[in-house]
Amino acid sequence: MEISFASQLLQYTITGITVGSIYAMVAVGFNIIYNVTEAINFAQGEFVMLGGLVMVFLRVTLNIPVVFSLPMAILVVTVVGILLDRLAIKPIRKPSVLSMIIATIGASFLIRGAAMFIWGKNPFDLPPFSGRNPISLFGAVVQPQGLWVIGFLVIMVIVLTLFFDRTILGKALRACAVNPKASSLVGINVKHMVLISFALSAAIGALGGIVITPISLMEYDRGAMLAVKGFSACALGGIGSFQGAVTGGLLIGLIECLGAGLISSGYKDVFAMLVLLAVLFIKPSGLLGSVEVSKIKKF
């Protein structure tokens, strides 16, 4: 059973896009919070982990069908996101970007520790949404769950685009991103926007965790790695840019898989980071980031 070079390339691309979709979801979550608070939410990976584990509990332990358990899991993690804002971010007396970042780091430890207490240290499996029989495509294979991952990314992009362009709330969030002081002058409650941004990115993170768990399993300490990858994707695409986050995530996934397949799997993460460094030095605002926006930001 030989495999042609073209099929191999196709396989690397498919896998890269699947993995990259998850990074993209994490990166979008980072951006939403960054845009409103200018802080990097280090607990973003924890949302992904929680999404996966809560889904396992609902789907496997309580045996609730996917159609119901998926929104329920997202809802649970969204509540965690809201609590994170209410208990860790809002109470800070004099919030600076850095103190918010450290608060999210502290919160991420707390969430990880709690998850370890609830679920233990072992990984959990989730049955794929539509079977495990791979689909053949010109000598390459696609896992059905991979299609779900990509599909959910597409849906998320469409929904969020509509949300940011068509709704008052979405527009208010965008206004905060451009200039929080001016937005509060026109009557936008920035504190509420912070809360909404945490809820929204928790929901997006949870979705990422839910769709990836059938492929990669999930355990309590996986969040940190995903957060790092997501943050790199964010920086590559241009921090603060929604399209940039999606592009960055997909690119990092692709570079990893092509790098591992064609050059060296030991150094695959190095390639992605070298590309990131090159982009930062050549076009510092990231691939799709705007220089104007980054000038207003303090961090």
């Binding site: 208990l87 860790a88 109470p91 800070i92 007396r93 004099k94 919030p95 600076s96 103190s99 450290i102 608060a103 780091i105 502290g106 919160a107 991420s108 430890f109 707390l110 969430i111 990880r112 520790g113 709690a114 370890m116 207490f117």
Partner: peptide, 21 residues
């Protein structure tokens, strides 16, 4: 023991919330 990570996180949070400086 196993609650170490949680306690560590809580301490970091308490300090950052009550003593931002």
């Amino acid at each position: 023991e196993d609650a170490e990570v949680m306690v560590y996180g809580a301490i970091v949070l308490v300090i950052i919330i009550f003593l931002p400086g």
